[in-house]
Design a binder for these strands. Structure first.
Length: 491
RNA sequence: UCCUCGGUAGCUCAGUGGUAGAGCAGUUGACUGUUAAUCAAUUGGUCGGAGGUUCGAAUCCUCCCCGGGGAGCCA
């Protein structure tokens, strides 16, 4: 099985570069390169590979086979260890699942089934031993739930390698999507001074001594003596800063870490996650919806093209029908209905919901699930929600009852994207701030965008890990980020 | 935060009041190229913790700890 993650041409160039760079360092071939190399050139030549044994099979006549992985590709390289090796007996005692070895030998066409090439070993050296009694990673599939307790070792498993491989490709796909369309990548700040942005509780950032902070005359903490001479927090969204750069650079996107100090204990929430937030000047809600739909289709298609082996493996391992569902997702037109249309459909469905449906309620998970999975039977975008259940910065519709908001709902995950056209009329925005109990004085910069050369603009936010869950068919968001941070857990 | 289901060997799990179990892993051995190799033998347990009921508790009760799922908040 040949990994298609790397295009052959890139592989050749990368190989040449590495050869140059590693002359004075460790000499080795990457297994990915050996498995993708054109057969005549690759085969019959001496190579050195480093890796971890995934399993060892001892055959008749004393020949042993080591399934070797170096992390460069999902498929392993089969190492053939003949009994004639001087240290053969030692290898039988020391090579287990997880043992690190260096192998030198000839890359040859495989005599067995299951792989095209194998390495006929001339020398095998144990680089790092494993005590098989103590090593927690097994040869056989282990549950992601259990691996969560081994955050430093789970990257040794194929499932986590496949998930993280897809994650990496998706990260590239996000940048490719926007860069190909002329969007500028903007690095919005991680530490922000925004008071309350209405997007969840924030983590405080401070260098003050928590045991004895400086006090004001009134007895409160004197933040003026803190590092930034004011109260600051980790960002919960780059949107406000993104808007300011969109109203200058035109089309921008952010892709960075985001922090929410909410006590959310679900398979869809993290306290630290990566968020993608495009913002487009001269754009309305229809344009916003088009970009969001294109974004989902394009990044899913990109992953399908570049992660064939990973998706195939994950389908077998944890998500039956994954590839077909992703192909459907990448090829489908997303349904579009307004909130009012959605409510009408829900009311006429004849279904009894736990939360009764009437105009004005926020759509619950059960409602969204019915809309996507039974009513539309494809991804759906719901727009124009009642203003009462959406944020102050969303543009008020002409009817005065709804705002130009949208949610992109997908099968399995529910809400994947939330976005809106922003309120670009100064007087309306100020009024809506006051209605929301916010002090416009704290948003001077934000209001300046409307005061000077205000233009219609729109954007959306997308939790990157939810996209990774969708594409990898993973149920729990904690399994698609290396070190998940959740309430009570910072491993 | 609320509701709910769980915690038994390194891993996955069976065991619902009467001597602690299986498969895999590990160990030992067998086997002419294996593919989660196969076959035989075998090691391995504070049954999450503390208290209680009982002649007797993995099993029943109380509290606590940890995990899964659902809900809320949200991306």
């Amino acid at each position: 099985m040949i990994g298609c993650r790397r295009v052959a041409q890139q592989a050749v160039a990368a190989r040449a570069l590495r050869t140059k760079l590693t002359r004075a360092m460790i000499i080795r071939s990457r297994i990915a390169d050996l498995l993708t190399a054109p057969p005549p050139a690759a085969q019959g030549r001496p190579v050195t590979v480093w890796g971890w044994a995934r399993s060892r099979r001892d055959s008749k006549a004393g020949i042993s086979f080591i399934d070797l992985s170096d992390g460069s590709v999902l498929a392993g390289l089969q190492v053939v260890a003949p009994a004639t090796l001087p240290n053969y007996g030692d290898l039988l005692k020391r090579v287990h699942t997880g043992t690190a070895v260096r192998v030198t030998g000839l890359l040859v066409p495989s005599q067995g089934r299951g792989q095209s090439v194998e390495i006929q070993a001339d020398a095998i050296e144990v680089v790092g031993d494993v005590d098989p009694e103590a090593y927690p990673i097994q040869k056989q599939a282990m549950s992601l739930e259990h691996l969560r307790g081994l955050p430093h070792l789970r990257a040794r498993t194929r499932t986590v390698q496949a998930i993280m491989g897809v994650r990496s490709v998706l990260a590239g796909a996000v940048h490719r999507f926007f860069q190909d369309r002329g969007f500028a990548c903007v690095h919005t700040p991680i530490i922000t001074g925004g008071d309350c942005e209405g997007a969840g509780r924030q983590f405080r950032v401070t260098t003050l001594d928590p045991a004895k902070p400086p006090r004001t005359a009134e007895g409160g903490v004197d933040w003026a003596q803190d590092f930034f001479a004011r109260e600051v927090h980790l960002t919960v969204s780059g949107q406000l800063e993104g808007e300011t750069y969109a109203c200058g650079l035109g089309d921008i996107y952010t892709f960075g870490p985001t922090f929410r100090a909410e006590n959310s204990n679900t398979p869809r929430h993290l306290a630290e996650f990566w968020m993608i937030e495009p913002e487009m000047a001269f754009c309305d809600l229809d344009g916003d919806r088009a970009v969001a739909s294109d974004f989902v289709r394009a990044t899913v298609a990109d992953a399908l093209n570049r992660c064939g082996p990973e998706i195939e493996f994950l389908e077998k391992q944890q998500a039956p029908g994954l590839r077909a569902s992703l192909e459907t997702l990448a090829g489908s037109d997303f349904a579009h209905l307004t909130y009012s249309e959605a409510i009408t459909a829900l009311e006429r469905s004849g279904k009894r919901f736990e939360f009764p449906v009437r105009w004005g309620i926020d759509l619950q998970a059960e409602h969204e699930r019915w809309l996507v999975e039974e009513h539309c039977k494809r991804p759906a975008v719901v727009t124009n929600y009642p203003k009462e259940i959406k944020a102050f910065y969303m543009r008020l519709d002409d009817d005065g009852r709804t705002v130009a908001a949208m949610d992109v709902l997908v099968p399995r995950m529910g809400e994947l994207i939330g976005g809106s056209q922003r309120e670009d009329r100064l007087d309306v925005l100020e009024r809506r701030m006051r209605e929301a109990g916010l002090d416009p004085a704290h948003y001077a910069g934000y209001l300046d965008l409307r005061r000077f050369g205000s233009v219609p603009h729109a954007g959306f936010g997308l939790g990157f890990e939810r996209l990774v869950c969708l594409v990898t068919g993973t149920q729990n968001i904690r399994d698609v980020i290396p070190y998940p941070r959740t309430p009570g857990h910072c491993p």
